[in-house]
């Protein structure tokens, strides 16, 4: 029997261009300080795809997507100036997410 974790994918847009390395490390630190270790461990957020300079897709464990959406609202600076993150859509798969948002 194989147990596969159920995930949710969230399409996120930033107010300014941001690169994948900044997203991966600095965003992770900011989310950890907001959510706390337990919530972060439940969510295990990860950036899985960068669509363009402003848009990327995050993966999170199912059940924690709302916490991640709230956490992204409170991150306004990653060290390179003021920044805002907007969560546009959520879906159970990347293909469905891109299709719903008209990017697929």
């Amino acid at each position: 029997m194989i147990f596969r974790a159920k995930r949710r994918y969230i399409l996120v847009r930033s107010s300014a261009p941001i690169n994948a390395i900044t997203i991966q490390y600095r965003l992770g630190d900011s989310l950890l300080s907001f959510m706390g270790a337990e919530e972060y461990a439940n969510a295990m957020p990860k950036v899985v795809k960068q669509m363009d300079d402003n848009t990327f897709i995050m993966r999170v464990n199912r059940g924690s997507e709302r916490k991640l959406v709230l956490a992204l609202s409170f991150i306004k600076n990653l060290g390179s100036g003021p920044l805002g993150f907007y969560t546009l859509r959520t879906s159970g798969s990347i293909a469905a997410l891109l299709r719903k948002s008209g990017m697929g």
């Binding site: 107010s15 300014a16 709302r66 959406v69 709230l70 992204l72 609202s73 306004k76 003021p82 920044l83 805002g84 907007y86 969560t87 546009l88 959520t90």
Partner: peptide, 11 residues
């Protein structure tokens, strides 16, 4: 940068 999506505002 202060703007939020509807999903975020509801949360």
């Amino acid at each position: 940068e202060h703007l939020l999506s509807s999903m975020q505002l509801i949360e």
